[in-house]
Amino acid sequence: MMALPKEELAVIKDAVTAAVTELVTVGRLTAGDVLVVGCSTSEVRGARIGTDSTTEVGQTIVAALLHVLQPKQIALAVQCCEHLNRALVVEKAVAKDHGWPICNAVPQLHAGGATSMAAFAQFTKPVVVESIQAEAGLDIGDTFIGMHLRPVVVPVRLQVKQIGEAHVTAARIRPKYIGGARAVYDESLM
């Protein structure tokens, strides 16, 4: 496929901005939380996952995510593709704060993917970690991010159902319910 026109990149940027803004609100994310994003730029462009990775789409998506998350001090973790075992690009300070061991890998277009490459380029001090437990997640193109969410995962039905041609799903977490029939729960945590 050919490069996307600026107008199409603007539509992608707006959709990502709307989706992540809604997820931050619905997921009740606050400073210090981590949001994991998995993204197939191939799917965004209307191709099958892993067949048409595109750096300009990855760059547009990461820039939109950071524009929303950075002012709120919510950390972004970008999942790599299966060729890097779905490892994640995070800021080094976030990895250290959470005690996540740092791995030695630099995402490439067909070994990590365009979105993780963009994160590696746009983050201040990027590192790759093998796994995390985030408070919320955004999946653009059915990349399966659930393995990186803390239990208990709750689906979030966003107004944005598609970014480009890619199917979009989202999730947040909630504390586990413990106790039995006599237990009382804090409604604000549900």
Rank of each mutant, 00 (worst) to 15 (best):
E22Q: 15
F123Y: 06
A93M: 06
W100Q: 04
T55N: 14
T25G: 09
G141S: 02
A64C: 11
S131G: 10
E82T: 07
V106G: 01
G32Q: 13
V34C: 14
T21K: 00
D142R: 13
G137C: 08
L69K: 09
T115N: 02
C103E: 13
V129H: 00
A134S: 12
V36I: 12
T21W: 02
L35R: 03
T51M: 12
A121Y: 12
A19P: 05
V90E: 10
T21F: 00
R28H: 15
M117V: 07
H98C: 01
G46W: 14
T25I: 10
A111F: 07
F123L: 13
E91Y: 07
T54S: 14
G46T: 13
L84F: 02
S116T: 01
Q133T: 13
I74K: 14
A95R: 08
V90I: 09
E130Q: 14
A31C: 05
Q59E: 13
L66H: 01
I132L: 10
P101L: 12
C80F: 02
D97P: 00
P126Q: 08
V78K: 00
Q59A: 11
G141M: 01
G50C: 08
G38D: 06
G99Q: 05
G46A: 15
R86A: 10
D33C: 09
P126F: 05
S40L: 08
V68C: 07
D33E: 02
G32S: 13
R28K: 15
T25F: 07
V78G: 01
R48P: 07
V44H: 15
V34S: 12
I102H: 02
Q73N: 11
K96V: 15
L69G: 04
A121T: 12
H67D: 15
V89I: 01
K92M: 09
A75Q: 00
V78T: 00
K92F: 05
V24L: 12
C81T: 11
W100T: 02
G46M: 14
D33K: 02
T25W: 07
D139A: 04
T55W: 15
A63I: 05
G38W: 04
C81P: 00
Q70M: 09
T115M: 03
A95E: 03
L66R: 02
T21H: 00
R45M: 14
Q79G: 03
S116E: 05
A136P: 06
L66W: 03
V36H: 05
L29A: 10
S53V: 04
G112P: 07
L23E: 13
I61L: 11
A47M: 03
V94S: 06
V128T: 04
G58N: 09
V57T: 05
V24D: 09
G27L: 08
P107W: 05
F123R: 05
P71C: 10
Q59T: 11
H67K: 15
C80Q: 07
C39K: 07
E91C: 05
G50L: 06
V37T: 07
A75G: 02
A31R: 06
V26S: 09
S53L: 05
V78A: 00
T115V: 04
V62A: 04
R48C: 08
S42R: 10
A118C: 02
